[in-house]
Simulated scan of single mutants.
Amino acid sequence: MKTETIGSAELQIWTVDEVAQAWARNEIVLIDVRTPQEYMFEHIEGALLLPLPFFNAEKLPGQSDKKIVFHCGSGIRSDKVARAALDAGIDRIAHMEGGFAAWKQAGLPFIGTNMATGAPQRVNG
């Protein structure tokens, strides 16, 4: 994990492997900041959807039980959201480096769309 100190706050940049391991152990809340259309087409199973245009850092839950990790398609939007959370007074927040593209490239499972039926289906990477 990389970290960046911004004032008295800490931005954590997690690798896909770090996120996958923490996700499997139920240690994090994974928040997808992509569009609803991107999410409907394919997403990490169980990740919550909070699209960037609707993001309000002041409404985020506390992190006493599970750490919040944001992700997007490539890591750009999740970095932006994480920095907005820090600006709103959250003292530590994380995002996944490389985004969903890196997740898929690592061969990790996700929910995709069956192009023949339009139905969601589990894709094992």
Rank of each mutant, 00 (worst) to 15 (best):
N114T: 04
L60D: 11
A94W: 02
R92T: 15
F110I: 01
E18F: 11
T35K: 03
Q21V: 12
G73C: 00
T35I: 10
L11R: 04
F70H: 06
T117H: 05
H43T: 15
G112W: 11
L48W: 06
G107V: 07
A102K: 12
S8W: 00
V33A: 09
G75K: 04
A106W: 01
C72P: 01
L50S: 04
F55Q: 07
I6Y: 03
N56E: 14
P61G: 12
A22T: 05
K66F: 08
A47N: 13
L86T: 13
K80F: 08
G112L: 08
L86K: 02
D79P: 04
N26G: 09
K2F: 03
Q37K: 05
M115W: 08
W14G: 08
A47L: 15
A57D: 14
A116G: 04
E42S: 15
K2A: 09
D32I: 11
I44Q: 14
R83T: 06
L60C: 07
A9N: 00
E10A: 10
I93L: 00
R92E: 15
K66R: 15
I31A: 07
D65I: 13
L50G: 12
R77F: 02
G118T: 03
P61K: 14
G125C: 13
M115D: 07
G73E: 01
L48G: 13
N26A: 09
I93C: 07
E97Q: 14
L49A: 02
A47E: 08
T5L: 07
V123K: 15
V16Q: 12
M40D: 15
S74D: 03
A20Q: 01
L30Y: 11
A47D: 03
L50E: 09
T35S: 15
Q121N: 11
Q12D: 01
S64C: 00
P53R: 02
V19W: 04
A82Y: 01
K67M: 09
C72Q: 10
T35D: 05
P53T: 07
I68Q: 07
K59Y: 03
T3S: 11
G99H: 04
A102E: 14
A88M: 03
E4P: 05
M96L: 10
I90Y: 07
F41D: 05
E38C: 08
G46F: 07
R122D: 09
I13A: 06
E97K: 13
T35P: 03
H43G: 15
A88C: 11
P51L: 15
I93K: 02
I68A: 08
Q63H: 08
Q12E: 12
Q105C: 08
M96Q: 13
Q121I: 06
E38H: 06
G118C: 13
G73P: 06
Q21F: 01
R122P: 10
N114M: 04
L108M: 00
A84N: 11
L49M: 00
A20W: 05
K80H: 12
Q21N: 01
V33I: 00
L108H: 13
L48S: 12
A84I: 10
V29L: 11
V81S: 02
S78R: 02
K67Y: 04
E27M: 05
G89C: 09
E58W: 00
T35M: 07
I28H: 00
A85T: 10
M40C: 04
T5D: 01
L52K: 10
Q37C: 02
G46Y: 09
D65Q: 06
V29G: 07
I111S: 05
P53M: 01
R122F: 09
D65R: 10
W14V: 08
